[in-house]
């Protein structure tokens, strides 16, 4: 049980795919312009990551080393395609907006990273929890960025939520200020928002300068363990 708790803590916070591993930046930066796109892409990522982890873990004994990577990519691509079709089936108008980025989830390195680093070496149950928590960790960062950029860039919150949940949610739209700061909606705004969020995360978890000198060596070790290999 404790093991499962550790796995979920890793995905949500201490080894968060977006803030610590810094994987999947392409969708993270491109889609975080509003809450509704961030939420939609976050949900699709959780869906794909969980299921691909599950399947890859279940098949791990059949997949020899030589074909492991192509097989993993194939599994991921299959689930992305399924998600893409389902999105067109249920939320066509939303798909018109974020469809391009749904297909790009295949290239989100978080997925291949978790498949290779975790799912192909662990039991199905663990792989499931890992997929869920990594997906959720990614989605939460995406959502936070979406909220910040929507407020600053457009001056609204929960705009167009009806695309995802139906007409009843049109009223959720909150107009905070009349005009936004356009810069935040453009790519540089995405980089700056992410930069601030990583800085905040490091501020909360890394030791402060005055504490640093005391146990410098042990902290250095800690940090090198924290940063997992990039793919």
């Amino acid at each position: 049980m404790n093991e499962l708790g550790n796995i979920s803590r890793e995905g949500l916070w201490s080894n968060n795919p977006a803030l610590v591993q810094m994987l999947g930046l392409c969708p993270l930066l491109a889609v975080s312009t509003s809450i509704v796109s961030a939420l939609a892409l976050g949900l699709v990522t959780i869906f794909v990551l969980t299921l691909s982890n599950l399947v890859i873990s279940a098949f791990r004994s059949v997949l020899a080393d030589s074909i492991r990577l192509p097989a993993q990519i194939m599994v991921i691509a299959t689930f992305v395609t399924l998600a893409d079709i389902l999105l067109q089936y249920w939320f066509f108008e939303l798909h018109q907006r974020i469809g391009l980025f749904v297909a790009l989830i295949v290239t989100n390195c978080t997925l291949l990273g978790r498949a290779e680093a975790f799912a192909s070496r662990n039991r199905v149950g663990y792989a499931l929890v890992d997929g869920l928590s990594m997906g959720l960790g990614f989605a939460l960062v995406l959502l936070a960025m979406g909220a910040v950029r929507e407020i600053l860039g457009q001056g609204t919150l929960f705009n167009n939520l009806d695309l995802l949940f139906g007409a009843g949610f049109t009223d959720w739209r909150i107009q905070l200020v009349d005009n936004g700061f356009l810069f935040m909606l453009l790519p540089p705004g995405a980089f700056i928002t992410l930069g601030f969020m990583i800085a905040l995360k490091n501020r909360l978890t890394l030791p402060r300068r005055d504490q640093f000198s005391e146990n410098e060596n042990s902290q250095k070790e800690n940090r090198s363990q924290n940063s997992s290999p990039r793919i």
Partner: peptide, 28 residues
Amino acid sequence: HPVTRLVFLGFLAGIIITALHLATRQVI
């Protein structure tokens, strides 16, 4: 043989996607 397995997996993926595509095509 690993290649057989990979081909098998690809075939399986193809069947699943085709099935969903056929089932949802009209509505989409």
